[in-house]
């Protein structure tokens, strides 16, 4: 039996380093490791981070039922889940966990799938930790409501959510500290 590369520990280690780079340097476009080029970024990401200890919500039914046993994560509502997989083309219609003042880490991580992280009609200027001065990203296929809603979620630091935008083979991180401006 051939095991898909995203389930192999050494590929998950490479994928984690990609995610760490994405989260450390918001707005930088990170490519999937070479060994995962034929995989989908969202599934590779979930395979790297999830196990039976955490819960996930597949808000817009992007996964198939056969993915769940492999991911091992518990299914949960968006209001309770540790990880929320969303379709960026649809407007956000849920309230994720933002953590508490004492435990801001008990907040959701959003994985938002978009058409492309190169080109498109939505230009964003980013500032904050991890960014030297400022940087610019262009996202294709993101519903405009996401920006306003994310702003509401992250406006009282340290509470907030951390986002990972993915297209087919790239990742961009947007932690709660990043200040986003449409430009």
């Amino acid at each position: 039996m051939k095991i898909d590369a995203i389930w192999q520990p050494d590929k998950q280690q490479q994928m984690f380093r990609v995610l760490l780079e994405a989260m450390s340097r918001p707005g930088s476009i990170q490519s999937l490791p070479a060994a995962l080029q034929s995989s989908m970024a969202d599934k590779a990401l979930l395979a790297t981070l999830l196990d039976g200890e955490v819960s996930m919500c597949d808000r817009h039914a992007l996964l198939t039922t056969s993915d769940w046993p492999l991911l091992q994560a518990r299914q949960a509502d968006a209001e309770q889940a540790d990880y929320i997989l969303c379709d960026g083309a649809q407007a956000p219609d849920f309230e994720p966990r933002l953590g508490t003042l004492s435990c801001p880490d008990e907040s959701a991580t959003l994985i938002i799938k978009v058409r492309s992280l190169y080109g498109g009609d939505m230009g964003l200027k980013l500032e904050g930790p991890g960014i030297e001065a400022s940087t610019r990203v262009v996202i294709d296929g993101l519903h405009p409501d996401w920006l306003k809603t994310r702003q509401d979620w992250v406006c009282s630091f340290p509470l907030g959510v951390d986002c990972l935008f993915v297209d087919e083979s790239h990742v961009i991180g947007l932690p709660r500290t990043t200040i986003v401006e449409v430009c």
């Binding site: 995610l19 760490l20 989260m23 450390s24 981070l49 801001p104 880490d105 907040s107 991580t109 930790p129 991890g130 340290p158 951390d162 932690p175 709660r176 500290t177």
Partner: peptide, 8 residues
């Protein structure tokens, strides 16, 4: 680690 980086 990812949460730690996100909440400096």
């Amino acid at each position: 680690v990812l949460k730690a980086v996100a909440i400096p």
